[in-house]
């Protein structure tokens, strides 16, 4: 049976409360649909402190009132779609980490073809998960409101991230900008 899947895009600045809002949103949807909560973890433990931090987050999600199933995946998100059914709610936090992983884990030269492939991987990966699952909530960061000039790496990173965000907002059923813990509706929900 065909099912209707939905995409929710959430951004905000550092410590704006965007991740908490995304988790609340996921739990709210799970309450309505009876769906299973999944956390798609994108972080790569590069040192002991990072590893401990990831493990703490994982324990928090597993021991809380709401049980989350954690899936770890740092690149090529499209590869995990088989884990999901139309009952699933997936929280992906966050696109900037994903972009970092795709750009830096492979030590490839940043030519036009590679950058285009990175963008495609992220977009098609998220789209594939969305098509397979019930709801996908994607979290990202607001980092494009400062000068990107003078550093080609930063400029290229910003361009890719901006293009990915534009695509996600275009495809999203709902989009939110979180400011100081308050979600502002940018798309959907009666706007």
């Amino acid at each position: 049976m065909a099912h209707i899947s939905s995409l929710i895009f959430i951004t905000g600045g550092v410590r704006s409360g965007k991740s908490s809002f995304a988790e609340r949103k996921a739990i709210e949807i799970a309450g309505e649909t009876g769906g299973r909560l999944n956390y798609l973890a994108t972080g790569v433990a590069t040192d002991a402190e990072m590893k401990a931090r990831i493990e703490k987050h994982q324990r928090d999600r597993e021991s809380g009132k709401y049980r989350w199933n954690t899936i770890e995946r740092s690149v090529q998100m499209g590869e995990v779609t088989d884990n999901f059914t139309a009952q699933d709610i997936i929280l992906l936090d966050c696109v900037t980490t994903l972009l970092n992983n795709e750009l830096f884990l492979s030590e490839t030269v940043w030519d036009g073809a590679f950058l285009e492939k990175v963008k495609e991987n992220i977009i098609t990966g998220i789209t594939a998960i969305k098509n397979q699952a019930g709801t996908v909530i994607v979290v990202s960061n607001e980092v494009l409101n400062e000068p990107l000039l003078g550093n080609e790496l930063v400029f290229t990173y910003g361009r890719l991230l901006g293009q990915i965000h534009q695509y996600l907002v275009k495809e999203a059923d709902q989009a939110f900008l979180v400011e100081a813990g308050i979600p502002i509706v940018m798309k959907g929900v009666g706007r």
Binding site: L144, N145, L148, G162, H165, Q166
Partner: peptide
């Protein structure tokens, strides 16, 4: 005059 602003690569 119509002023358009927003972050870089936001589709202005």
């Amino acid at each position: 005059m119509h002023f358009i602003t927003g972050g870089a690569f936001n589709g202005k």
